[in-house]
Lab assay of single mutants.
Amino acid sequence: MEVVDPQQLGMFTEGELMSVGMDTFIHRIDSTEVIYQPRRKRAKLIGKYLMGDLLGEGSYGKVKEVLDSETLCRRAVKILKKKKLRRIPNGEANVKKEIQLLRRLRHKNVIQLVDVLYNEEKQKMYMVMEYCVCGMQEMLDSVPEKRFPVCQAHGYFCQLIDGLEYLHSQGIVHKDIKPGNLLLTTGGTLKISDLGVAEALHPFAADDTCRTSQGSPAFQPPEIANGLDTFSGFKVDIWSAGVTLYNITTGLYPFEGDNIYKLFENIGKGSYAIPGDCGPPLSDLLKGMLEYEPAKRFSIRQIRQHSWFRKKHPPAEAPVPIPPSPDTKDRWRSMTVVPYLEDLHGADEDEDLFDIEDDIIYTQDFTVPGQVPEEEASHNGQRRGLPKAVCMNGTEAAQLSTKSRAEGRAPNPARKACSASSKIRRLSACKQQ
């Protein structure tokens, strides 16, 4: 084909351009004929944790799935940006308080904090938690009735009371019990989460009196709706648990309003109706937990002794299953770290194939690490110290990083047969305790 000078094309009309061969290198194709290559998922490591896909996002930050490269346990990490926390009232204080509380709590029905990582340079905090497959609110939203069968609701409620009793025994008032803060594992274990607005009572406090509340409006008791200066913290949790039980068994809320002012007005009056299909035992329990006067409201001991709580409820309806993943529609909620794991395991070791967030990740503290002497050669063979940054567990980050890069360049065919977990650990520049 004859090559045409581009400067001469402006002298031709459209018809003349076609005659000189423009149609031979300008093609129009339908979008259905285009085959897009999927974007390669680059592996990203935060300390010893391999990052997966997004699980959810809230006002405080994002939650992603991660894999512990040492234990191969599935975890969830809450990623918090200090810049964003400053824009939220009491944001930083709530996060630090939640970390302090979770560090000393150990119960099967309370979410466990596994690790805390802090990135000084990017001003990011990573709260590594045990993995929960789904939230209770997500399960309720997945069915038209917006409720659980009585047998399933009873099982979840009993676990909620177990976890709540443990928190109260530790002198902690949750203040925000609701389905949105109750998570579930694949085995059906309920976990109380989000202790950001919780309050730890003084060890020598005479009672459970509280003065502040930041919980969700629909789950607040009349004493808070009416603006009382002080109130019983434990009875606030009992009320919120009662509203939660009402919601998961009926699909409704005892109090509603077009806006928060109308909602608080209705809560302050204390008038509500219980659907007739709840039955006398459940209705009596709800009335005891939603008692207007805090002094007359049920205690956890009274809830445990109630006939509806103690009764064994046979399954009359099919239980609400864990819904498919909202993004991938995966009904099994498979591990989202698998594509990243395959990338590390299947590809040659190259620095361009993975990302390490930083050479140094500070753990379990908000301060910069200490310094240790770096050896410097002298005339008599002895070495003197220069400062060298280290990880919180004493690992020399720069030395590990250099060693990792040197190993990656060394030709050794046997290394390709290593397991995925050992490869992740070798790529991680800074081991965590």
Rank of each mutant, 00 (worst) to 15 (best):
Q305V: 14
V143C: 09
M139Q: 07
D358P: 03
E120L: 11
L285T: 00
C73W: 02
M136D: 00
V95C: 05
P281M: 10
Y49W: 06
G408V: 08
K312Q: 14
I99P: 01
W239S: 00
E165Q: 06
V372R: 11
L182Y: 00
E199C: 11
T249K: 00
A410I: 13
Y292A: 07
K124A: 07
Y362F: 06
P275S: 05
Y118P: 10
D23H: 09
V110M: 02
G257I: 15
G279R: 04
T395Q: 12
P326Y: 01
R409W: 11
E70C: 11
K235V: 04
M392L: 14
F148Q: 01
S334I: 05
T71M: 03
K312S: 09
L286E: 01
E145M: 10
I111S: 02
Q7C: 13
S404F: 04
V110Y: 03
S283I: 05
F255S: 07
N226T: 09
P275L: 04
Q159I: 02
A398R: 11
L286G: 00
C278A: 09
H379P: 12
P314W: 14
E223Q: 03
F231H: 04
S334R: 03
W308S: 00
C391A: 13
G242Y: 00
P275T: 04
D359Y: 07
L400S: 06
P315W: 03
K416Q: 12
G270Q: 08
Y261S: 03
Q37N: 05
E57Y: 05
I35W: 15
H168S: 04
V63M: 04
R75C: 13
T13F: 09
E98L: 02
Y156F: 09
D30G: 13
N259D: 07
A198S: 02
N266W: 03
T363M: 14
Q214T: 15
G180A: 10
F366R: 13
L50V: 04
D176H: 00
I29M: 05
V372G: 07
D277T: 14
F264Y: 06
A406M: 03
N94H: 10
C158H: 13
F204R: 05
S283G: 08
V143W: 03
A397M: 15
P373V: 04
F366P: 15
R301C: 08
S378I: 09
K311P: 06
D343G: 11
L55W: 02
H174Y: 07
Y166W: 04
V95Y: 13
D352V: 07
E98A: 02
E57F: 04
G135R: 11
K403D: 13
M289D: 01
G370I: 14
R425D: 15
A410R: 14
N226H: 03
S422D: 14
E14Q: 10
S31V: 14
V320R: 12
P373D: 14
N259E: 12
H168P: 01
V63I: 12
P369W: 12
D141W: 03
S401K: 12
L195W: 04
P89T: 04
R39S: 08
P281G: 04
G279Y: 11
L55S: 03
Q123W: 03
S213V: 06
T402H: 01
S307G: 03
E223V: 02
A377W: 04
D68L: 02
F219I: 10
V320M: 12
L285P: 00
C418V: 15
D350P: 12
E130L: 01
Y340S: 10
K44R: 07
K81T: 10
P321Y: 03
D176T: 00
S422C: 12
K312F: 05
P369A: 11
S216G: 05
N266T: 04
R415T: 05
K388R: 13
C391G: 09
M136W: 00
V243F: 03
N266V: 04
P221G: 06
R301I: 15
L341I: 14
C151V: 08
S334V: 10
V368G: 11
S240W: 00
S283Q: 13
I29Y: 07
M22Y: 14
L117E: 12
P281E: 10
C151M: 02
P144G: 06
E376C: 12
L17A: 15
K388W: 13
Q123Y: 06
A410M: 02
H306W: 00
R39W: 08
A205G: 03
C391E: 14
E120I: 13
W239D: 00
L252M: 04
D229S: 06
L105G: 03
L285R: 00
P222V: 04
I356M: 08
N119V: 03
G346R: 14
K62C: 11
R106L: 07
G385R: 07
E57S: 08
L117K: 10
P280T: 13
Y118E: 00
I161N: 01
R425F: 07
I224H: 12
V173H: 02
L353A: 14
E120W: 03
M129N: 03
T336P: 08
P373W: 14
E130R: 02
M335K: 06
A200T: 06
E291L: 04
A218E: 09
D359I: 04
H313G: 07
M335A: 13
A406C: 13
L72A: 04
Q159R: 06
S193C: 05
G52V: 07
V337W: 02
K329L: 11
M392D: 08
M139V: 05
P280V: 11
V320I: 14
G242T: 00
I356Y: 07
T249R: 09
T230H: 12
N90S: 08
V197G: 02
G346Y: 14
F298E: 00
K262D: 11
T185C: 07
T189W: 08
V243A: 06
A318V: 07
V390H: 05
Q382A: 11
E291F: 04
Y36D: 09
E256W: 15
A218C: 05
G279H: 15
P323S: 10
N226C: 09
E291P: 01
E291C: 09
C132W: 00
R103S: 06
I161T: 10
I161S: 00
I424M: 11
P387F: 07
K64L: 13
Q214A: 08
P89W: 06
D176L: 00
V3P: 15
E357T: 14
Q100A: 03
E293D: 11
E265F: 06
V66F: 03
